[in-house]
Deep mutational scan, measured.
Amino acid sequence: TTVVVGNKKYTFDNPEAAEKFAKKVAKKLGATVHKTNGTFKVK
């Protein structure tokens, strides 16, 4: 599962961990999490 934050990509074996990370980053940046085909995008 990939999490994309700006131009950085983070890969997780565990989708739950990926989602948690994405939400944490989004909260910090005041952004939102978008899920597309198993990829979480923070923007």
Rank of each mutant, 00 (worst) to 15 (best):
T11H: 12
N7V: 10
F12H: 01
V25R: 04
T36D: 14
N7P: 08
A31V: 07
G38M: 05
D13A: 13
T11L: 13
K27G: 06
T36H: 13
T32H: 07
K24L: 12
T32K: 09
A22W: 02
V42G: 02
K9A: 10
N14W: 06
V42F: 04
K24A: 14
V25A: 07
F21D: 00
K43R: 12
V3K: 00
A22E: 00
L29F: 07
T39V: 14
G6Y: 14
N14P: 02
F12C: 05
G30I: 03
T2M: 13
V25K: 04
F40R: 03
T32C: 09
F12R: 01
V5N: 02
F21W: 12
L29K: 03
E16H: 12
N37V: 04
Y10W: 14
F21M: 03
T39W: 09
A31C: 05
V42T: 03
V42M: 03
T32G: 05
T32L: 06
K8E: 05
E19R: 08
T39H: 15
K28W: 08
K23T: 12
F12N: 00
G30Y: 04
T1Y: 14
K43Y: 15
T1I: 09
K8T: 08
A17W: 09
K27Q: 10
K35H: 10
G6I: 07
E19K: 07
F12S: 00
F21A: 02
F21I: 01
K28F: 10
T32M: 07
K28D: 07
P15C: 11
F40Q: 03
G6D: 04
N7R: 14
K27L: 12
A26R: 02
G30H: 07
A22C: 03
P15L: 09
Y10I: 05
K41Y: 15
G38I: 03
K35D: 05
F12T: 00
K43M: 15
E16M: 13
G30L: 04
V25E: 04
T39L: 10
K8R: 13
F21N: 00
T32N: 06
K20N: 11
T11W: 13
D13T: 14
K20L: 11
P15T: 09
T39D: 14
Y10Q: 01
V25W: 11
K27W: 08
E19Y: 15
K35L: 13
F21V: 02
K35G: 05
K41I: 15
K8F: 11
E16F: 12
G38P: 03
N37F: 05
D13R: 13
N7A: 10
T2G: 05
A26I: 02
A18S: 02
K35P: 04
F12W: 04
V5Y: 04
K20R: 13
N37P: 06
F12K: 01
Y10F: 12
A17P: 04
G38V: 03
K35E: 08
T1L: 06
N37A: 06
K35M: 11
V25L: 12
K8A: 09
G30Q: 06
K23W: 15
K27A: 12
V42E: 03
K24P: 00
V5R: 02
V5E: 01
G38N: 09
A22V: 04
A31F: 11
K41M: 15
H34Q: 13
E16T: 12
A17L: 12
N7Q: 10
V33W: 06
N37G: 12
A22I: 02
N7G: 07
F40L: 15
V42Y: 02
K8V: 08
K23S: 08
V4I: 14
K23Q: 12
T36Q: 13
V42I: 11
G38L: 04
K28T: 08
V4K: 06
T2Y: 14
T36M: 12
L29A: 04
K35V: 12
A18L: 01
H34N: 06
K8G: 04
K20A: 13
A31G: 15
G30K: 07
T36F: 13
F40S: 03
N7T: 12
K27I: 09
V5W: 05
K8W: 12
F40H: 04
F21K: 00
K41P: 03
A22F: 02
F21R: 00
K20T: 11
T32S: 08
F21P: 00
T1W: 15
K41D: 14
D13E: 10
F40V: 06
V33K: 01
K8Y: 11
K8P: 00
V4E: 14
L29W: 08
H34L: 13
L29N: 04
N7K: 12
K23C: 11
F21E: 00
